[in-house]
Computed example of a mutant assay.
Amino acid sequence: MTMTAPDPLRDPQAFLLHLYRVAVQRAQPLHSMAQHLPPPPKGRTVVLGAGKAGASMAQALEALWPQDAPLSGLVVTRYGHIPPRPEGLAQRLEVVEAAHPVPDAAGLAAAERILALTRGLTEDDLVLCLISGGGSALLTLPAEGITLEEKQRINRALLESGAAIGEMNCVRKHLSRIKGGRLAAACAPARVVTLTISDVPGDDPSVIASGPTVPDASTCADALDILARYHIDIPAAVHAALQAGALETPKPGDVRFAGHAVHMIATPQQSLQAAADAARAAGVAAYILSDEMEGESREVGKVHAALARAVARHGQPFARPCVILSGGETTVTV
C-alpha cells in the first residue's frame, strides 16, 4: 500500500504521523513473512506463538500457507491486540489473549497449552514459532517452586527497577519452564523454524520474548547478580535453586537445536529506514541516529530535545529542515 506524504512544511505534524505509519507498515508480517517460510513437511505443521504481534503474524501465516496443507496451533497475544480478520480468510490457528506487561492466569493457561502441544512430535513434523515483543509476559510458566503471584511480583519489580531489557529477560528465562530455549527443546525431534519480529536493541533472538526457541548463553549466576543489583527478593528455595544451577537453561551447542532456523522478519532498523526513505522522497533530509538507544527515558529525551534545538537554532549537526530518527528500548525507574 502506497501512502501519500503530506506537505512537510505546511503540516509538519501530519508529515511526522505519515512517517510513523510508514514505519509501522514496514513491520507488518504479511509483507515480510513469505520469503522465510519453509515448504510443508512430510508430517504435521504445528504453530506456536507469543507476543503483541502474535495475532497479526498468525493471520499472515494463515494467508500465506498453502490452503491444501494442514496447519494447526495456538498463539497468545495481548488483550485488545487481535486485528479484524480479512474477509474470506479462514481461521486455522487459535489465538487467545492474556495480560502484558505483568502476566496473568490467562497467560499461564496459554503457556501450559502451548507446551502440551509439543508432546508427541516426530522428526517428520515442523514447528513454526511466531515470536514477537511482549512474549516474555504472555508466555508465562513459572519454574518449580514459584507461584504465579510471586512471578507477578518479581516481574513488576523488574519493570520498575530501571533494568535493561536484556537483564530483565535473563531473570525471566531462569525462572521459567518455557523460556530461554526450553520451548524449542521440548519440540525435539521435530524441526523448529522461528519467525520473529524484533523489538530489542541489537535484534538478539535470545532476548526477544526471552528467547523461548533459541539457546541461552546466560547463566543462573548472571540472573542472581541482576536480582542482587536491583535489590529484588525471590523465594529462598528459588534462590537456592539458582545458586545450585538447578534452573539452568539449554545452552548453545545443545543437540536439540540442530537443524533449527531463526528468521528475523522485521526489525527496528528496517522500520527506521522505511521512514527515512519516505522523508527523503518528500524532499526532507533524514538521519538515523541508532536503532539501539537504551538508558533512562527522561535522559534520552533530553538529549533528543537538545539535538533538535541545535539543528533549529544553529543548523548543527544537521541542516534544517530535516527529520532525526532513532529506535531502541529506553527504561523508566519508578
Score class of each variant (00 low, 15 high):
52 K>M: 08
6 P>S: 03
94 E>F: 11
55 A>Y: 10
122 T>L: 01
229 R>L: 13
154 I>R: 01
176 S>H: 03
277 D>F: 13
191 R>T: 04
274 A>G: 04
6 P>A: 05
168 M>E: 11
162 G>M: 12
205 P>L: 12
176 S>R: 11
68 D>K: 14
263 H>G: 02
192 V>N: 01
171 V>W: 01
57 M>W: 04
329 E>C: 10
166 G>L: 07
31 H>V: 11
278 A>C: 07
170 C>Y: 04
156 R>P: 04
111 A>K: 02
327 G>F: 11
59 Q>T: 07
184 A>D: 03
136 S>D: 10
256 R>E: 00
11 D>E: 08
62 E>Y: 09
83 P>Q: 09
8 P>D: 14
88 G>I: 08
180 G>R: 00
293 M>A: 12
70 P>V: 09
22 V>W: 05
314 H>A: 15
139 L>Y: 06
69 A>M: 15
228 A>T: 08
118 T>F: 08
104 D>N: 09
76 V>H: 15
213 T>G: 00
307 L>K: 10
59 Q>R: 11
197 I>A: 05
165 I>R: 02
149 E>D: 04
333 T>A: 14
44 R>Y: 02
188 A>Q: 02
281 A>S: 12
184 A>K: 05
334 V>E: 03
181 G>P: 06
37 L>Q: 06
230 Y>N: 09
219 T>D: 12
315 G>C: 12
235 P>H: 08
147 T>M: 00
67 Q>M: 06
7 D>K: 01
109 A>G: 05
21 R>K: 10
48 L>W: 11
139 L>P: 09
141 L>G: 00
146 I>W: 01
317 P>N: 05
158 L>Q: 05
190 A>D: 07
167 E>F: 10
159 L>M: 11
87 E>S: 11
144 E>Y: 00
199 D>N: 02
184 A>C: 11
210 S>W: 06
119 R>T: 10
114 I>Q: 07
263 H>S: 13
79 Y>M: 08
79 Y>K: 13
250 P>C: 06
198 S>N: 12
185 A>V: 06
26 R>G: 04
161 S>T: 13
46 V>T: 05
263 H>E: 03
125 D>C: 00
37 L>M: 07
259 G>E: 00
217 A>E: 15
246 A>C: 02
311 V>N: 08
333 T>I: 13
65 W>T: 02
222 D>S: 13
118 T>V: 02
297 S>M: 12
264 M>W: 12
304 H>G: 14
102 V>M: 09
182 R>F: 08
170 C>G: 05
323 V>F: 07
283 G>V: 13
250 P>L: 08
147 T>H: 00
34 A>W: 08
332 V>H: 06
298 R>Q: 12
24 V>R: 03
178 I>A: 00
20 Y>M: 10
239 H>Y: 14
131 I>E: 05
153 R>S: 06
101 P>K: 04
116 A>P: 03
247 L>I: 04
309 R>D: 15
107 G>P: 14
318 F>L: 15
165 I>H: 05
308 A>Y: 15
156 R>C: 08
153 R>W: 02
